[in-house]
Computed example of a mutant assay.
Amino acid sequence: MIRERFKEMDLRITDLADYLHMSRTTIYSFMEAYDKGNKSVISPNVLKLFDYVMDNPLSGKKNVMSLLLSDITGDMERINKAENTAISPVIKYLTEYPESSKAKFFQLAVSTSDFDSVMEYLLKVYPLLRNRRLTDAEIEFIKPYDDIRNIIDNNKEK
């Protein structure tokens, strides 16, 4: 139902995913959840958009674009006010080095869930890397990290 509504408005899912900084797969899963009435699993901004589109049958592509842009503007204002939060170093980095590999990874990480388990693993590994006395279990746990580092280091030498 929601998918057909976006088709009527000539708004492609690929474009919508780009505007929302999400993967198409995520948008499709949100659409499926919306059509099934399972709104609790949908991101609040996406839910707001879906509700707007479904509650306003005369709205068109321009109205949706305007809504998306106003939300983006509002989000930027909230980010600018976040100077004393944990996110401020991330914002500063992204602003100073927008084309860096790290910035590109940040964008990818927030637009897809493909790397969530890897990030969880790295968050657990990080404190162990600072520890000089590891148990056998901890050594075994960080072995995949060491293997990846060795592969990267070997490729740099070539």
Rank of each mutant, 00 (worst) to 15 (best):
M1D: 15
R3G: 15
R3C: 10
E4A: 12
R5S: 14
R5C: 12
K7P: 02
K7D: 15
E8C: 07
M9W: 06
D10I: 09
D10M: 12
L11T: 05
L11G: 05
T14E: 07
D15Y: 14
D18L: 12
H21C: 08
H21L: 11
M22H: 12
S23L: 10
S23A: 12
R24Y: 01
T26P: 04
Y28V: 07
Y28W: 04
F30A: 14
M31L: 09
E32C: 06
A33F: 03
D35I: 06
D35M: 08
K36A: 15
K36E: 15
G37Y: 07
G37M: 06
S40V: 07
S40F: 06
I42C: 02
I42G: 00
S43R: 13
S43D: 12
S43A: 08
P44N: 05
P44F: 04
N45W: 06
V46R: 01
V46K: 03
L47W: 06
L47P: 04
K48C: 05
K48L: 10
K48G: 02
Y52P: 08
Y52W: 04
V53G: 08
M54E: 09
M54V: 08
N56S: 11
S59R: 11
K61R: 14
K61E: 11
N63L: 02
N63E: 15
N63S: 14
M65N: 08
S66V: 02
L68D: 02
L69P: 01
S70K: 13
D71V: 03
D71P: 03
G74E: 11
I79C: 09
I79T: 04
N80Y: 07
N80R: 15
K81Y: 13
A82N: 14
E83T: 10
N84E: 14
N84C: 04
T85V: 01
I87T: 03
I91Y: 01
K92W: 00
L94M: 15
L94C: 13
T95L: 07
E96N: 12
P98I: 15
E99F: 13
E99S: 15
S100C: 14
S100T: 14
S100Q: 14
K102A: 13
A103F: 10
K104A: 05
K104Y: 04
Q107A: 10
Q107M: 08
A109P: 00
S113W: 01
D114V: 03
D114Q: 05
D114W: 00
D116E: 05
V118Y: 03
V118T: 05
M119L: 14
E120Q: 09
Y121E: 05
Y121P: 04
L122K: 01
L122D: 01
L123C: 07
L123Q: 06
K124E: 02
V125L: 00
Y126I: 07
P127D: 04
L129V: 00
N131E: 13
R132D: 12
R133E: 05
R133Q: 07
R133T: 08
L134P: 09
L134N: 10
T135D: 07
D136S: 09
D136E: 11
I139H: 07
I139L: 12
F141M: 01
P144N: 09
P144I: 10
Y145F: 15
Y145M: 02
D146P: 00
D146K: 11
I148P: 00
I148S: 02
I152S: 03
D153S: 04
K156P: 00
K158E: 04
